[in-house]
Lab assay of single mutants.
Amino acid sequence: MAAGGDHGSPDSYRSPLASRYASPEMCFVFSDRYKFRTWRQLWLWLAEAEQTLGLPITDEQIQEMKSNLENIDFKMAAEEEKRLRHDVMAHVHTFGHCCPKAAGIIHLGATSCYVGDNTDLIILRNALDLLLPKLARVISRLADFAKERASLPTLGFTHFQPAQLTTVGKRCCLWIQDLCMDLQNLKRVRDDLRFRGVKGTTGTQASFLQLFEGDDHKVEQLDKMVTEKAGFKRAFIITGQTYTRKVDIEVLSVLASLGASVHKICTDIRLLANLKEMEEPFEKQQIGSSAMPYKRNPMRSERCCSLARHLMTLVMDPLQTASVQWFERTLDDSANRRICLAEAFLTADTILNTLQNISEGLVVYPKVIERRIRQELPFMATENIIMAMVKAGGSRQDCHEKIRVLSQQAASVVKQEGGDNDLIERIQVDAYFSPIHSQLDHLLDPSSFTGRASQQVQRFLEEEVYPLLKPYESVMKVKAELCL
């Protein structure tokens, strides 16, 4: 049975990233139509530049190519590739079939990587351009969430054990800070992308030097003109047959890092959902379990974690691919890159769409948070109580021993009897502590235990987050809708 299948058929496997999760716009960027249309555009740009620099290419040939950029006979191309065992030459023939007058000058002087690699770089750039505003929107939604809850005390956790208090907004800023680093890295790697350009079979530009009869300047002009037509500021000066596969490492490393950030955020949300302090959106008709109707599973956060793990592992592909590119190139890269580049971007696209949807509907339960604080705060307040007693004339050592005994009794009630923490009640009825009984409410005010959390939130948002989001103001209103 021949390899390949009808990918629109229910009898043929289709990647869930495309069929179930990723956005239509990201799927289109990695589609065959987008790819092969870009090949034709690159052939047109090459012909236009070659004509401008004096090669015998007519206006009629150029116009014929322009008129057929979208006229792609995919069936013919597939048949040609089956016959020739070469995808680029299959599309040269297919393009030439609908451009008979231009057929002889299509791909003039070029090698397969002229269309293959340059198209990949265009796709990487455009895919990054799709991700950047999506990530900015996630940051914006979380920034709104953090600002609104900047002063809401909550129990902090280290080692997932109760620690000092923080605020809900401050905790959210930990998430935002990681995503801001990801946004900066995505922008950097996007701006650092260079075009492969017009380089020939081993990167020496020998074929173009021959076409222009040894004119170095025209060869350099050709490279520059096509690079500018493709919208790049610069091209690699040095290439082998391909652009260095280190570029793929750079791009997928940034995406993998984004995956790590999203995994951490969504894990926190899942843990908070278990504590009943916070939940992701839950639709009115949504079913959490087929057997347990009360369940409210954090399905979206779980999906993000599941896909983020996949995204983090994909960076190993370009690392290994770059390491086995012998001399000017081997074909070890080809099949692998067809999979890992598309999957990385479709996965990143999915987790950003999902995280935006989550961040637009996060639900906080202040009463649950308050109750958990009441359970733990008495123990945390013991040092403040000791200091207040010393100020009232008591002995630190005597007070410490009193607190120690009462704390152990209260802990026994919590752990052995399943009761509430009654340390404060014990202190309130103990005559030894009568000098500070009137101060206990103040000493137990949760806001006095959150330090500068709310001020940190305000400063972080104003100095770091809002300036970073400013270039994306025009796209901030787009909502994230999930079908599944």
Rank of each mutant, 00 (worst) to 15 (best):
L174D: 09
G288Y: 02
L440S: 05
G393E: 08
M278W: 09
I72S: 07
V138S: 11
D317T: 06
H263I: 05
L186K: 03
C399L: 06
D191Y: 12
L42K: 04
G231Q: 09
V457F: 03
Q439F: 06
V390R: 01
W39Q: 14
F379V: 02
K66S: 09
L209K: 09
L179R: 01
G96C: 05
K295Q: 03
V226T: 08
M26I: 07
Q161C: 05
V315Q: 08
S438P: 11
R85V: 13
E213G: 14
V219P: 04
H263F: 00
F379K: 03
A103L: 10
G200T: 00
T167H: 05
V254M: 07
T38I: 13
Q184D: 12
K224C: 10
F208Q: 05
V414E: 01
G156F: 00
L211T: 14
F30T: 06
E328C: 06
A453K: 03
L130R: 09
H217V: 11
D6F: 07
L275G: 06
D32V: 13
D191R: 07
A143E: 02
S261K: 01
D349G: 09
D430Y: 06
C113L: 04
V88T: 09
V219T: 08
P293W: 02
Y294V: 02
P378L: 05
M387G: 14
R245V: 01
L307Y: 00
F30Q: 09
A342G: 12
Q63L: 10
A102V: 10
H86G: 01
S151K: 12
R337C: 00
S9H: 15
K147E: 12
D191V: 08
M181Y: 10
I139F: 03
E213H: 14
K246L: 02
E213W: 10
A49C: 09
F28N: 07
L53Q: 08
T227R: 06
K470T: 14
L135Q: 15
N126G: 13
L444Q: 04
R404D: 00
P56V: 11
T354E: 03
A163V: 02
A77R: 02
F345L: 12
N274L: 05
P298T: 06
M89E: 00
L108S: 14
M278N: 03
D191W: 09
G96N: 08
I249S: 06
F379T: 04
D144F: 14
V457R: 03
Q375Y: 05
N126F: 12
Q320K: 04
F345C: 12
T321M: 13
V138Y: 11
L135E: 08
Y21K: 01
N68V: 09
E25P: 10
R196F: 07
D349H: 07
M76F: 12
K199S: 11
I351D: 03
D422G: 08
T244V: 04
E464N: 05
T158A: 02
Q397N: 13
R83T: 11
D192C: 12
M76I: 12
L186I: 11
R149G: 08
S23N: 08
L84A: 10
R309Y: 03
L108P: 01
V368Y: 05
K101G: 11
F379W: 06
S290C: 04
P293E: 00
L186H: 09
F157D: 00
L307M: 14
L179W: 05
V413N: 12
T119F: 07
E148C: 11
R196S: 13
D317R: 02
S474D: 15
K229A: 07
L362S: 05
F74W: 09
F232S: 03
M225W: 06
F28P: 01
K147G: 09
A235W: 12
F28Y: 11
C180F: 12
L44H: 09
I176E: 07
Q184G: 11
Q161W: 00
P133D: 09
L186S: 11
E81K: 00
T38F: 07
T354P: 07
V413G: 08
L346M: 14
A206R: 02
N421Q: 06
L482R: 07
P133S: 14
G109N: 04
N118V: 00
G109E: 01
C180Y: 05
Q325H: 12
R33D: 08
T94Q: 13
K477R: 14
F208Y: 07
I105E: 06
W326G: 04
S301F: 02
I72E: 11
